[in-house]
Write a protein that binds this DNA or RNA. Structure first.
Length: 437
RNA sequence: CGGGGUGUAGCUCAGUAUGGUUAGAGUACCUGGUUUGGGACCAGGGGGCCGAAGGUUCGAGUCCUUUCACCCCGACCA
């Protein structure tokens, strides 16, 4: 892509109401644009990042043999009445009538829709298990949307649902999904913990949250410093109450006693931190299959309700989480798997023909090698372009400028800030080596 | 849903207390020139229903009433 043709409206100043780094930089760097409270438009750079995250999810879902579907966004309210959740969800569920006065809702999650899709189509234990997922826009009319993409009303979520003939098989699938989720978040380059969580209003027998560690997270976690153990503070407090009859009413109190708390899994010490919930997996059991009368026949010919699992992952929230964990004062620092463009080729002085010529050659060469490359061919000064590149967060920028007089160019590493100088002959293979994932 | 705050140029904000020419600055944008290694400089220019509606007044960005939107704190929440 030529920067001169790209739609990337960067700004020097942040909107006055942005608080989080991800909100500030994603806005300033021209990724997102707020439309109304909790509603955002994704501009080209954000769309590219989202596509990358989705591709990784698709790949890891394929590994565990989950199949992609797409359910309609608008759902008949009847299903929500049938499951009993129409009242439980309250005003977060956006409702409206069509021209025939039939009541519909905008899908905030799709348990009902998925059960409805599967019931009466899967009739035998021989057709189980099955795991279906989609990546789709969701709508929840949040009481208080905030923090940019972190808590919007409209957001993109990967939601998956599995159906089983036994608890054991659900457990197996639950573990498989947990592992897939770990792989996804690892590939995205994020520091995270899988924590014990409440099953919440959705119900069920077990649930875990995937938490990206960040000071700006909305959840408080207790994590072990020597093993993988972690728990959402709410459930952790509950366990402490049960085990030692602690009387803990506030998080402040927790932080005072934390030094005395040992990991329930190993001998390590627990410490407090904050996390961004990017995934949540539940063992649902038969809650929905009973409510919606979704049944199959077992090997004895007996009618059974599907045993279900449900697995969510916030795709648009991940975009924000990546920046929360990867930024500095100058802007975004994209990880290799998520960068909208891996490489930026910067022409320092557009009036120097030799610079332009080399840049164009490299641009073509990298493009042909399927490297996602941006060519900054704008008639701007060096400093302006560098600031812009740092704000957007290209992992690498090839600077074609002054050094060209000596037959050299530079490669700027966004994460480390270091610039290496090398000859024009070496730059191509060097960059290919650097960007290899 | 409770408490608080803010709506003036694409963005950040002055101006509103005490009503009075043609509504301002910075930045961004356009033109020309200079400049070309860290968000340049000079000159010229375009851009506003002062959130909306009603009212008071000779006169409203400014005063009054209503309303809408957005944000912050709290409660709530995959």
């Amino acid at each position: 892509m030529r920067r001169s043709r790209a739609f990337i409206p960067t700004t020097k100043e942040a909107p006055s109401d942005a608080v989080l780094a991800s909100h500030i930089f994603l806005t300033r760097a021209g990724f997102i644009s707020q439309v109304a409270s909790g509603l955002y438009s994704y501009m080209p750079l954000a769309k590219k990042v989202i596509n990358k995250i989705e591709n990784i999810i698709h790949e890891e879902m394929a590994v565990i043999e989950a199949e992609e579907v797409e359910l309609s966004f608008v759902a008949p309210a009847d299903l929500w009445i049938e499951s009993g959740r129409i009242d439980k969800f309250g005003k977060e569920l956006l409702r409206f009538y069509d021209r025939k006065e039939k009541l519909f809702v905008l899908g905030p999650t799709h348990e009902e829709m998925m059960v409805d899709l599967v019931r009466n189509r899967i009739r035998s234990y021989k057709q189980l298990p099955i795991n279906l997922y989609q990546i789709k826009t969701k709508f929840r009319d949040e009481v208080r949307p905030r923090y940019g993409l972190m808590r919007g009303r409209e957001f993109i979520m990967k939601d998956g649902y599995s159906f089983h003939a036994s608890i054991e098989d659900l457990d197996r699938e639950f573990n498989a999904v947990e592992n897939a989720y770990k792989k996804i978040i690892t590939r995205l380059g994020l520091d995270f913990r899988v924590v014990e969580a409440y099953s919440g209003s959705i119900g069920g027998t077990g649930s875990k949250e995937i938490m990206v560690i960040s000071d700006s997270g909305e959840d408080s976690l207790a994590i072990c410093d020597s093993c993988e153990y972690g728990a959402n503070i709410e459930i952790f407090m509950d366990m402490q109450k049960l085990d030692e009859d602690f009387d803990i009413s506030t998080i402040k109190d927790i932080s005072e006693v934390k030094g005395d708390n040992n990991c329930p899994n190993c001998s390590g010490k627990l410490s407090l931190t904050k996390g961004i919930e990017v995934g949540h997996i539940f063992k649902l059991g038969t809650t929905y299959s009973e409510a919606l009368k979704a049944e199959y026949l077992d090997e004895n010919g007996r009618t059974r309700h599907f045993i279900m699992g449900t697995y969510g992952m916030g795709v648009s929230r991940l975009v924000a989480a990546i920046i929360e964990q990867n930024h500095d004062d100058n802007g975004c620092i994209w990880t290799k798997e998520t960068a909208p463009y891996m490489l930026n080729i910067m022409i320092s002085n557009i009036k120097e023909e030799s610079q332009v010529d080399l840049a164009e050659q490299l641009y073509i060469k990298f493009s042909e090698a399927n490297v996602e490359v941006m060519l900054d061919d704008r008639k701007e000064r060096f400093g302006f372009k560098m600031k812009d590149a740092e704000l957007i967060g290209f992992p690498y920028t090839v600077i074609i400028g002054k050094e060209l007089a000596n037959g050299n160019v530079q490669i700027y590493n966004r994460k480390t800030g270091e610039k290496i100088t090398l000859s024009t002959d070496e730059v191509y293979s060097k960059v290919l080596g650097l960007i290899k994932i």
